[in-house]
Write a protein that binds this DNA or RNA. Structure first.
Lengths: 198, 198
DNA sequence: TCTGTTGTTCTCCATCGGTTCTCTTTAGGG
DNA sequence: CCCTAAAGAGAACCGATGGAGAACAACAGA
């Protein structure tokens, strides 16, 4: 998710020189351009960039390294970071954006988070999925929300609100519903869409 | 549909010299111009360009190779219909398209299907989800594929191919893996991405 | 009808480039 | 100073790519 220094360098180099290449560079070509001697090493970095959604996955095709077109007309939704049950949102340093179909957007302001962990697996939300969140401070019972618990943890759960009690339901047989008093839980957004890459 | 290096070169050459040709060039003429010695090889590339919609299909006519005038590229990929385990794809009448993020696309031609049924629920593919499929006729073991079984049913399953036997694994505890002989199963595409709306 | 041109479909094959290892080196943080 | 994560070297693997060439079918013109 978060790029290492070298990965950032390599991405910058690609973004910088994208125009100058006749064809998308191969690993070997890029190696030479960067002064590396091992394809395997570079491959590791490129893999990381693919993971981050910055480079097109080259699925054993011999077609070179291509950047994913970073929204020319800027309809992208900001990718704010990673959400893991039980930990604050881990922000992504640079302002990364992601192209998202309009049908997945809500009416209000939206952003994207990458899911980490299996706490919603029974709802079909897997580790590594991207979720589209509409920024809101209230939700209807049964909606899946991004909730800030006690000003510390942020988590993605199905919400059930009663007078005097809020229950957050994980969707994982191994986990128990969690009960809080309403003032411990602040809703930050509700789930509007989901994207997954295979 | 993304081009290989050579395909791009050939297309560029055609686009470049379109005006300079008296008549649309024949395969032989293009071969000479490009320094190729085999018509068959060039034909393969031209076919790819036809697939990509860049060159007019020359259906056994002897009219030479003509480019398709390129309008502004229409975004979005076609939504072909609904896929349900055990029934043919139910086509959507009018040509509907859907905007899909670049990162979810493969390198080949892609289309979208709406999932109906719970047969892949344990993989996090739910009823009503949209799946992005890359059109292909082969797959690696472990990939999730759209498979045509016995020219009748179409289904979305994880595939495991052995010499003499093909196993399609549903991801639903209530269903059993299905075994077929290789000639009963035709792969139509592989799963590249998933979209869900809440 | 014959003949040469043009498109189509094969098979075969070399090479290149992506992938996957293992092992080593370097850098940075406690 | 030590430990771990990041980065690089290099070898082995194997499948995608692109080319050669032969055989064939469709068609046009003589």
């Amino acid at each position: 998710m978060k790029l290492t220094r070298r990965q950032q360098q390599i991405y910058d180099y690609l973004a910088q020189n994208a125009e100058h290449f006749e064809h998308p560079p191969t690993l070997d070509e890029l190696c030479r351009a960067l002064g590396l001697r091992s394809r395997g090493s570079l491959h590791k970095h490129i893999q990381a960039l693919v993971e981050a959604g910055l480079v097109e996955p080259m699925d054993r095709s011999h077609r070179g390294i291509r950047l994913v077109p970073q929204g020319p007309d800027e309809p992208g939704i900001p990718l704010l970071g990673t959400i893991a049950a039980g930990r604050p949102i881990e922000a992504v340093p640079q302002a990364e954006t992601m192209q998202v179909p309009e049908v997945l957007l809500g009416k209000g302001a939206c952003y994207v988070l990458k899911v980490s962990g299996d706490s919603m697996i029974d709802e079909g939300i897997l580790d590594g999925d991207y979720v589209v969140i509409e920024q809101r401070d209230s939700a209807r019972n049964g909606e899946i929300v991004v909730a800030l618990i006690g000003n510390e943890e942020v988590t993605l759960k199905r919400i059930e609100q009663h007078p005097g009690q809020v229950i957050l339901h994980p969707a994982n047989a191994a986990m128990e519903p969690m009960r809080y008093s309403p003032d411990e839980v602040r809703i930050q957004g509700v789930l509007k869409g989901l994207l997954r890459r295979y």
